[in-house]
Design a protein around this nucleic acid. Structure first.
Lengths: 254, 254
DNA sequence: GCCTAGACTATTGTCTACAGTCGCCAAGCT
DNA sequence: AGCTTGGCGACTGTAGACAATAGTCTAGGC
C-alpha cells in the first residue's frame, strides 16, 4: 500500500484556480481519489466486482461516504452500478475505446483552437508547474505518481482554453483513457522511458508557447502512446463497424 | 406538487438501449430526478442554498440516499457543494452561459457529422418516438413535461451519432442549459407556442431524414430559443472578454 | 459605541444498525 | 436424472443517531 500521492481529479480543482484548498477534504473525496488510483493503477480491472464492505475495510471508513464516492465514480464512467446487484469496474469494448479516443481528440482540437495562442500567462504557468512535477516524478521513477502528473499536465493544457466545462469533460474522458491503458499490462515503462516522455511533453509546451495551433495539434495527434492498440481486437469484444474502421485509420496514419 | 413525469437523465437510460428497465429505481434515482425537476423547473434558483434536512422532509426519505443524489447532481454541474458549508444550486455567470452554449453547439456539430446520414434506423425511430411524446405534451399544455420531452428529443438526435459518451456529455450540458433558462421568468410559453415548437422540431427531424448535414446544422444553429439572451448582461456577473465577444457575435448573426 | 469572546444553533459529516433483495446450494418431489 | 423449492448467506438499500464544524447572536470589556 503506497502513500497517497496527489489526488487525481479532485472536485476542488475543477474550475477553482489556486484557491485555498487547505480545507481538509471530506472522506468522500478521499475515497473517490483512492478508488480512482486503484482503478487506473490496475488493482481493480474492468469487469471486477466492487464490493462495498471489502472497500470499507481497505479504506478504513464506513459505507455511507464510500457509497457517495461510488456515485461520483459512476458519473465519471469508471464504474457501472446495477441496482441491487452491485457495482463493477466499467467493462470496455472496442467500441468504447474508439469513443474515448476519438472524443478526446475532438476535445483537444477544440481546446487548442480556443486557447492558442495563449492569452492568460497564468494558465501557461500552471502547465509549467505540472510539467515540473512530471519531471520530478520521472526522476523518482514512480509509475503511479508519474501517471497522475502526466494526467494533470494534459488537463492543464486543455485548461489553456479557459473553458472550465471543456476541461471537466476532458478530465473525465482522460480518466477513461487511463482505464483503457490498464488493459495491457506490458505498458510498464522504465525510468528511461519516463525521461523521454517528459521530453516529449516539454517539446509540446514549447510549441504551445510558440503559438502555432497547427504545430500543437500535429504534436498532440502523434503524442499519445498508441502502441497499446496493437493487438487490442483480440482482447476486447464489441467490434462495431465504426470502431474497426477507426482502428484501421489510426494504424494507417502511423 | 405535480405527479412525477418521465425522469430526466436517469442513469439507466445512459448507454442502455431499451433494455429491461422494469427494475424499481433506487431512492437515489428518485431523488436525483426530483431534484433535477425542482432545479430546471425553477423552484430552486441558481445560488439558492440546498439544505439536506429540508429536502429529506420534502422528498420523504432519509439523508443517505439524498446525499448520494446530491453527489450525482454535483457531477452533472447542477449544484455546487462546499465541504462543511453545504450545497447551492450552481450560480451562473455570463461566462458560464457562454461556455454552455458554445460547447453544446460543438457537440451538436460532432454528432451531426458522425450520425448523418443516419445508419441505424432504430436510432431514428427513437427520435420519432420522442417527438411524438413532445407533441402529446404540447397538446396537454404541460410546461414541465414538454420541457422534459424536448430535452429527450434533442438527446435522441445527438444519439444518432451512436456515440454514447458524446451523448452523455451533451446530456449534461443540455441540463445546464435548462438551468440557464430558469434565469428569465418570462419564458413561460402558451399552448400555441408549444405547437409551433413541435413544428420546428418536426422540420428538424425531416431534415435529418433527408440526410443533408449542412441543412441540419443550419437548422440546429437557428433552432434554439435565444431570446432569453436579450438583456442577460444585466442579470449576470462574470463578463469575461470571450463571453462578451460571443454574445456580440450571436446577436449579429440574428 | 465598537470590538472581542463565548456560547448557542443550525447544518453537515460520519457511523452503526436493521431491513430487503439476490443468488446459490441442497434437499425433496416428479 | 432433472426440475423445483425452500433455506441460507452475502450484499445492497435505507434509516436514525451521534459527532464535529461553521455561522450567529449576545454579553461583556475597552
Amino acid at each position: 500500500m503506497t502513500n497517497p500521492p496527489a489526488p487525481v481529479a479532485d472536485r476542488h480543482q475543477v474550475g477553482v484556480q489556486e484557491s485555498q484548498i487547505v480545507l481538509p477534504p471530506s472522506l468522500v473525496d478521499v475515497a473517490a481519489g483512492q478508488l480512482r488510483r486503484m482503478i487506473i493503477g490496475g488493482q481493480l480491472l474492468p469487469g471486477d466486482r466492487v464490493v462495498e464492505n471489502q472497500l470499507t475495510q481497505q479504506l478504513g471508513m464506513s459505507r455511507p461516504p464510500l457509497r457517495e464516492a461510488l456515485r461520483v465514480l459512476e458519473r465519471e464512467g469508471l464504474i457501472r452500478s446495477l441496482p441491487r446487484k452491485g457495482a463493477i469496474v466499467t467493462p470496455l469494448t472496442l467500441h468504447d475505446v474508439y469513443e474515448i479516443f476519438t472524443l478526446r481528440d475532438e476535445f483537444e482540437v477544440l481546446a487548442v483552437n480556443l486557447g492558442i495562442p495563449v492569452r492568460d500567462p497564468q494558465r501557461l504557468e500552471r502547465c509549467r508547474a505540472r510539467l515540473e512535477l512530471m519531471a520530478e516524478a520521472a526522476r523518482a521513477g514512480d509509475q503511479a505518481v508519474f501517471t497522475e502528473c502526466s494526467f494533470e499536465f494534459h488537463v492543464a493544457v486543455i485548461g489553456l482554453s479557459g473553458h472550465q466545462r471543456l476541461e471537466a469533460a476532458y478530465r473525465t474522458l482522460q480518466l477513461q483513457m487511463l482505464l483503457c491503458m490498464t488493459l495491457n499490462h506490458r505498458a510498464r515503462a522504465d525510468k528511461e522511458d519516463f525521461v523521454q516522455n517528459v521530453g516529449r511533453h516539454r517539446r509540446l509546451l514549447e510549441l504551445i508557447e510558440g503559438g502555432d495551433r497547427d504545430l500543437v495539434l500535429h504534436e498532440l495527434a502523434h503524442h499519445g502512446d498508441r502502441t497499446f492498440l496493437d493487438d487490442i481486437e483480440s482482447t476486447l469484444d464489441g467490434h462495431s463497424d465504426v470502431a474497426l474502421a477507426w482502428l484501421e485509420r489510426v494504424r494507417e496514419g502511423e
